[in-house]
Design a protein around this nucleic acid. Structure first.
Length: 618
DNA sequence: TTAGGGTTAG
């Protein structure tokens, strides 16, 4: 077993046995049973009249009956720490000890030292009181100044009377950290368990894997997964499905599919959750032809005799809606009903959202009526989507009426409810109404988030009200709300529009300093700003900077640069970029076509390209 | 212990 020679501050006191206490002590009549008792402590009697058995009995009785006032009288000046030492030495029942342990921590206002925690954990594990261990570890891992894992593992080792402590404690420690979202510590406990040769259960590994997925730490997820395989921990469906989910979230779809195939060799065939996860991964993270791939996964699961469920259909419906294809979503919706699955609130919400995004508010309202007719109650999400739908088409009165309906029905409007409405007003330049709603949401106890501020700042920028935008930026700072990439995109865009691209570039540097990751659009807006100013050199250098940061130029990047080059009359270079776009397998969009038509052809330049783009131009 | 729904920029 690996031993650690590190400094152990938490163990630097209190490891001495009661017999070695620095406080003046007297010996009890029977040293093996009785603790040493301080001479001066009241109400412990003096040595000649002492009744230690009586003291022990009164103390234990008070704890078991929870007579805390009486117990306090018994303890006197002895102190909780000393009494705890005696309780350990008296070999009292572990539940009694735990009860005093918890009460005295509360009374003291500070936790007991790590040695006591570990000794108690050993007692509880010997008695197989696993729920109690779980609860004790839960409070241990939620402490502000808790010890590092190496200190805890060392303490567990030295406080145990056996060569190896019960591995269940380490297993539950990993789980406790994971379930309390202390991911770094959970990973550390996972590693230490390996160092100590402790075989963890699949349950605690799954907790850890799941928390890593939730926190989007896919790199660590993959490391932990590989390690579980190396340690031959018998992973189950939940483990594989969780890892596949994480890998999908990171956009590594091919890897996710490979993992699903690898499951077989571990005795786990992909199940309905595996397929649903893969389909959802493709819907959310796939690129061109993603819905085709999602459908082919559906076919594959049916071929493998795994029946799709309501969730499978919901995933597909939402996928088509997010892809801007509500028609296909409605086709799946019909298919789902034909196969005997009842749509639920999630089904309807996905469809209502998809229709709203496409500006089809009337159809969205019809579906809302339909869902209520089918006894599916609309949720706050449904109402938020209807509000969003009305806002999309500028129908603010109707949107506001939905909010009133929500309140009338006794439902609680959410942050998203207000954010959607505020954004609706901002987009129409109705800043007073937007600010009024911001005040109303605060009155309801809802705090603005970064989205609220982004909508408002963008609104003020559109209205040319720099002061208003600046005031909100200050308010964000005062409320400790961190600007995100969208905030920066808005500000960079505004500076570029004002012809202040240099200042905008400084914001890009600020983002890097603050750890806010710029996206494609951030660079594209900036490049556009420099192109508009005729500074192609900086625009092209930004493309290089973007690619160095791991983001390859997308169609929008090419469009911005081609436009800039055309404006400068650099038609040969523009044409070269156009060809490069096609060579890279990128699909030109309507902006590209417009550019070709308006900028290139009008300037008497016939693009020298092959394929469909040329055909379209013709 | 694993899978599905809502707002902000362009």
């Amino acid at each position: 077993m690996k031993k650690f020679n590190c400094f152990l501050p938490a163990l630097s006191h209190g490891f001495q046995s009661p017999g070695k206490l620095s406080l003046s002590t007297i010996s009890s009549p029977d040293c093996s049973l009785m603790p040493p008792v301080p001479l001066s402590a009241e109400p412990i009697p003096s040595s000649d009249t002492i009744d230690l058995e009586g003291f022990k009995s009164r103390v234990c009785h008070s704890i078991s009956k929870q007579h805390w006032t009486a117990l306090k009288r018994e303890i006197g000046d002895l102190g909780y720490h000393k009494l705890l030492e005696f309780l350990f030495q008296w070999n009292v029942d572990e539940e009694l000890l735990l009860r005093f342990f918890k009460w005295s921590e509360k009374e003291n206002g500070s936790p007991h030292n790590l040695e006591f925690c570990c000794r108690l954990l050993h007692l509880l594990s010997n008695a197989k009181k696993y729920d109690k261990i779980r609860s004790l570890l839960h409070s241990m891992v939620n402490r502000e100044n808790d010890s590092s894992c190496s200190v805890i593992f060392h303490a567990l080792t030295v406080s145990s009377d056996r060569p190896k402590f019960n591995p269940v404690i380490a297993d539950m420690l990993v789980s406790a950290y994971a379930k309390n979202s202390r991911i770094d510590m959970a990973v550390e406990a996972f590693k230490r368990s390996g160092d100590y040769g402790i075989r963890l259960s699949v349950l605690s590994c799954n907790s850890l894997l799941n928390e890593l997925v939730k926190s989007n730490d896919i790199k660590t997820l993959e490391l932990v997964y590989k390690e579980t395989i190396r340690r031959r921990i018998p992973l189950n469906h939940v483990s594989f499905n969780t890892v596949i989910h994480g890998v999908c979230k990171a956009g590594k779809l091919r890897k996710a599919v490979d993992l699903a195939a690898d499951m077989e060799s571990w005795g786990c065939s992909p199940n309905v959750i595996t397929y649903n996860t893969l389909i959802d991964g493709h819907c959310k993270m796939g690129k061109i032809g993603k819905m085709y791939k999602a459908e082919s996964l559906l076919k594959e699961m049916v071929t493998n005799r795994i029946s799709p469920t309501q969730v499978t259909f919901n995933i597909l419906i939402d996928g088509y809606c997010k892809d801007g294809n509500s028609l296909a979503a409605l086709r799946v919706f019909d298919e789902m009903k034909k196969k005997g699955f009842s749509p639920n609130a999630i089904t309807y919400n996905s469809l209502i959202n998809g229709l709203s995004k496409e500006g089809k508010i009337e159809e969205a309202l019809d579906l809302n009526t339909q869902m209520q007719g089918c006894n599916v109650q609309p949720t706050i999400v449904t109402y938020n989507e209807l509000i969003y739908g009305f806002c999309r088409v500028g129908k603010m009165i109707e949107a506001k009426n939905v909010l009133d309906e929500v309140i009338e029905k006794g439902l609680a409007p959410s942050l998203v409810t207000y954010n959607s409405l505020i954004d609706g007003y901002c987009k129409l330049g109705k800043m007073e109404e937007a600010l009024e709603l911001q005040a109303k949401m605060s009155q309801r106890g809802l705090c603005c988030d970064v989205s609220t501020y982004n909508s408002l700042i963008a609104g003020f920028c559109r209205a040319g009200n720099t002061k208003g935008a600046s005031r909100l930026l200050d308010e964000m700072g005062e409320n400790n709300i961190q600007a995100d990439v969208i905030t920066y995109n808005i500000l960079i865009g505004e500076l570029c529009r004002r012809g202040e691209s240099r200042k905008a570039l400084k914001l890009l540097d600020e983002m890097s300093e603050l750890g806010v990751d710029p996206k494609h659009v951030t660079y594209n807006i900036l490049m556009d700003g420099f192109c508009e100013e005729g500074n192609l050199r900086v625009a092209l250098s930004l493309r290089e900077r973007m690619e160095r940061g791991g983001r390859k130029a997308n169609v929008a990047t090419y469009n911005v640069l081609i436009k800039g080059l055309c404006r400068k009359g650099k038609m040969e270079e523009a044409n070269r970029l156009l060809n490069e776009l096609l060579e890279k397998g990128l699909v030109p969009n309507h902006v590209t076509y417009d550019l070709v038509r308006d900028e290139m052809i009008e300037k008497g330049f016939m693009p020298d390209i092959e394929g469909h783009l040329y055909d379209v131009v013709q």
